[in-house]
């Protein structure tokens, strides 16, 4: 990490910690007056986060997209950006940060404990298709996290409703149909961007390994998670799965993506293309 990057990174992480705590407070004490302030705090965190990425870019000459730390940094940025987008565009579910910000803390924390060293871009990673691949991976990951987040909100409210309690705070999330539709919208966006990510990855692999598909562990995992989301779409479209069942499905399916997201280091080990003569 460069000097400025570490300052901005840790500031952003601290702000996200505070914001996560704030979202927990809002949900536990059912106080939605703090949500506006939390939005401002999260936006400040995103500003710091962007500055950390810019500082890293300036120090190493390329966008962070190669190590676990890079993935945490950029993946986290996309999730926070999507969270803010949701807070502004879909006001009823602006408490979604309760689910998405802890995920950001987790992946950024995990990344920073791994390998935040600055390094030039490895020859194997210099590809337009890889850029495309990683960009769409972040988009789809952000969308899947949002789908999970809405799922959590749905379940929180449903639990109360099942206990016969109508809590006004939860009612502000919008109707059940609205939450259900939002889950599906994010899922669909994630699914399509995930498909583009797999295709771009396959084209990159063709120029690097000579084959579109080699059943490399990372490739296999990404196929598994895409298929799982495909199953989820089928269950909804053809079997009518909705509501809490679907919300649980969104939470479970995200696990496959998390495993995939942090398995990137495997690809570095399995690649045969990095030469080292010394």
């Amino acid at each position: 990490m460069s000097f400025y990057e570490s300052i901005f990174f840790w500031t952003a992480l601290t702000i996200y910690c505070l914001a996560s705590g704030g979202f927990c407070y809002a949900v536990v004490f059912r106080n939605d007056r703090v949500l506006g302030k939390l939005l401002a705090i999260t936006a400040t965190g995103l500003g710091m986060h962007t500055a950390a990425i810019a500082a890293r870019y300036a120090a190493q000459g390329h966008l962070p997209w190669s190590s676990n730390y890079d993935n945490g940094l950029m993946g986290g940025w996309f999730i926070v950006l999507s969270t803010l987008y949701v807070c502004i565009r879909h006001k009823p579910i602006r408490v979604i940060g309760i689910a998405t910000l802890p995920a950001v803390l987790l992946i950024m924390g995990y990344g920073v404990m791994r390998n935040p060293v600055l390094s030039p871009l490895d020859a194997t990673l210099k590809s337009f298709w890889l850029f495309f691949h990683v960009f769409f991976a972040w988009l789809s990951f952000g969308a899947y996290v949002l789908a999970m987040g809405v799922g959590v909100l749905y379940l929180l409210r449903e639990k109360k409703e099942r206990a016969g309690q109508i809590v006004e705070f939860y009612q502000r999330f919008g109707s059940n149909d609205y939450l259900d539709d939002m889950m599906f919208r994010y899922l669909v966006f994630g699914f399509i961007t995930n498909a583009v990510m797999i295709v771009a990855g396959a084209i990159w692999a063709k120029d690097l390994w000579g084959s579109y598909w080699s059943w490399d562990p990372i490739e296999t995992w990404s196929l598994i998670s895409w298929l799982m989301y495909g199953v989820a779409i089928h269950l909804r479209v053809t079997m009518g799965w909705r509501g809490s069942r679907f919300a649980w499905l969104m939470i479970a399916a995200l696990m496959t993506v998390i495993i995939n997201f942090f398995g990137v280091s495997l690809i570095m080990k399995s690649t045969v293309h990095v030469f080292r003569m010394g």
């Binding site: 871009l121 020859a123 990673l125 890889l130 690097l208």
Partner: peptide, 22 residues
């Protein structure tokens, strides 16, 4: 860090091409 491996090649028609990892 290995950042490139630039290779110069001449084809049958005498045209020069470059290749690299990726």
């Amino acid at each position: 860090v290995a950042t490139g491996l630039v290779v110069g090649l001449r084809d049958d028609r005498g045209m020069l091409h470059t290749a690299d990892i990726n």
